[in-house]
């Protein structure tokens, strides 16, 4: 990458020697051990691994919701601490405010960032339409299906126009059919917005469908994290031979067949 390139390309994430441990019942649990990672701007990185491997913790550190014990997170070359405007998080649960309508929920993120209500609502309307929820602007969260609610959560994150979208198993709670539609949706959003996406998932197929690279974390301290490059053309076809081969390879890495 040339210097010019790196200036033009925003949303670059670098992790240097990142460690984080928790104390559980008096026992120290090293969740992340000296992780180094570079994610160029506009890339989709999927983080996979068994539960307890620290993938969600890594994402939460990137989001600024947790402080690392050691190491740095750099965004566009500058170290960051805490929550920042370059990043937006999409959680596994939609986390909508039940007392706000769809539009108000989508506008919420902008309002929290100091945009006045009228402007925020205006922009929110645009994103509500973009995620396919036209006609539901005035609905309350409890009137929505799971997939629709998650679309609202996605719209809320996109509305603040982040450079980096952090997704914590965003489709994990959806049914299989909705999940497939939403994966297509995420691929489209990424194509149109050109944001960096870091996606934690336990669904290997989802990782292969969306990601440029897959970071595989393991639970035992002996195995270092691995990065797998996915050289697959886009848009991706789940039944293409390359796709199937990669899925088999990844599943084998997890001891599945």
């Amino acid at each position: 990458m040339t210097v010019l390139d790196s200036i033009a390309r925003r949303g670059e994430v670098t992790i240097r020697d990142l460690s984080k441990s928790f104390t559980l019942n008096g026992r120290r649990l090293d969740v992340l051990r000296g992780i180094d990672l570079h994610v160029p701007g506009g890339e989709v990185l999927a983080i996979v691994g068994p539960s307890g491997c620290g993938k969600t913790t890594l994402l939460r550190v990137l989001a600024g919701l947790e402080e690392p014990d050691r190491g740095d997170v750099l965004i566009d070359g500058a170290p960051v601490h805490g929550i920042g405007r370059q990043r937006a998080v999409i959680f596994q649960e939609p986390r909508l405010l039940p007392w706000l309508t769809v539009t108000e929920n989508v506008a919420f993120g902008l309002e929290m960032r100091g945009i006045d209500r009228a402007t925020a609502t205006e922009q929110a309307r645009h994103w509500v339409r973009l995620v396919g929820l036209a006609g539901f602007e005035a609905a309350y969260p409890r009137q929505l299906s799971g997939g629709m609610a998650q679309r609202v959560g996605i719209a809320r994150a996109l509305t603040v126009q982040p450079e980096i979208l952090l997704l914590d198993e965003p489709l994990g709670a959806l049914d299989a059919m909705t999940k497939l539609t939403m994966q297509e949706e995420l691929a489209r959003i990424w194509r149109e917005q050109g944001v960096t996406m870091i996606l934690v998932t336990h669904d290997l197929e989802e990782a292969i469908f969306l990601a440029d690279r897959v970071l595989v974390l393991s639970k035992d301290s002996g195995t270092p994290p691995r990065v797998i490059d996915l050289h697959l053309p886009r848009p991706r076809d789940r039944s293409a031979s390359g796709f199937v081969a990669l899925r088999r390879q990844l599943m084998a890495a997890f001891g599945l067949h």
Partner: peptide, 18 residues
């Protein structure tokens, strides 16, 4: 929900009121 609001940079006051 509080964490969600914080992740958008909500101040303590905003978290309380909203």
């Amino acid at each position: 929900l509080i964490e969600m609001a914080r992740s958008y940079g909500a101040t303590r006051r905003a978290v309380f009121l909203r």
